[in-house]
Nucleic acid binder design. Structure first.
Length: 115
DNA sequence: ATTCTGACAGCAA
DNA sequence: TTTGCTGCCAGAA
């Protein structure tokens, strides 16, 4: 057990892993992911991790992660400002004014759904 | 080592 | 109700 080596349990890797577990047509929040990973208050870092998620080899459905208000706070990081919304609508999620409609129904909490 | 930034969240006015 | 400030964690320069 190499003390310094970084396993697949890096914070970034964990964020990607959980994000990939988000079911099709569902969404979650940065804070929910942070809480599931145990860091609780590192929601900002989750966003930072997703910012680099496109560099990874595997696809990470970062468009399914929004802020706690159901607002598409990261849409500007998807090339075009409409990409994130289109990806969501492609999954049957209705987006109105950069915000997810019926957010509470679409919300998927890894802490309680996954355990 | 120090400082700054960020795709957030919580709380005070 | 909306706006603004603060705390938090991890990484980059």
């Amino acid at each position: 057990m190499p003390g310094k080596s970084r396993n697949n349990t890096d914070f970034f890797s964990q964020v990607y892993e959980v994000t990939r577990l988000i079911p099709w047509g569902r969404v979650t929040s940065y804070g929910a992911i942070a809480r599931y990973l145990g860091t609780g208050r590192s929601a900002r870092t989750v966003g930072w991790a997703l910012n680099a998620s496109h560099a990874g080899g595997e696809f990470v459905p970062a468009h399914r992660v929004v802020n706690r208000n159901g607002l598409l706070s990261g849409k500007l990081h998807f090339g075009n400002s409409t990409t994130m919304q289109q990806l969501l609508q492609n999954e049957g999620i209705i987006v109105e004014d950069d915000r997810i409609v019926n957010f509470s129904e679409k919300f998927w909490d890894p802490a309680s759904e996954l355990d």
